[in-house]
């Protein structure tokens, strides 16, 4: 089947926009992922600012690093692990759930349980 010139141009234009759209959406996707992750990272040279919100040299380096690693196909967890191995979990606003942080994660629940027992005990007595 022979395509006329108009059809050929139409197909090529359609394909171009498809690829352009896919590439744009992939870029947007990475930008979103970078934003989400860097919002969870502490700027080590600022006071109570996330890497995303900071314009410090350190933060810009981390933003570039995160972007490059996402582009290389690394996952959010892998990037967080890479940074925590070098800067400590201090760089993470939300530390990993592991043996070292068990108390940190578990304490609110311990507090809640004790408070509930205390409340039940007191209301029963009344």
């Amino acid at each position: 089947m022979k395509l006329n010139l108009f059809s050929k141009i139409s197909i090529k234009t359609l394909l171009f926009f498809c690829f352009f759209g896919i590439s744009l959406s992939a870029n947007e996707n990475i930008e979103e992922k970078v934003k989400k992750l860097t919002l969870e990272l502490r700027c080590m040279t600022c006071q109570n600012q996330s890497v995303y919100d900071s314009d410090a040299d350190f933060s810009n380096d981390i933003k570039n690093l995160v972007k490059n690693k996402f582009e290389e196909g690394e996952s959010e967890y892998e990037i967080k692990k890479f940074l925590a191995e070098r800067y400590g979990e201090y760089i993470l606003f939300r530390p990993f759930f592991n043996y070292n942080n068990l108390f940190l994660w578990g304490f609110p629940f311990i507090l809640l349980t004790i408070s509930l027992f205390f409340l039940i005990f007191k209301t029963r007595k009344k």
Partner: peptide, 9 residues
């Protein structure tokens, strides 16, 4: 290299 060494200042 600084990032690899965890340097921030």
């Amino acid at each position: 290299i600084a990032l690899e060494f965890g340097v921030f200042g």
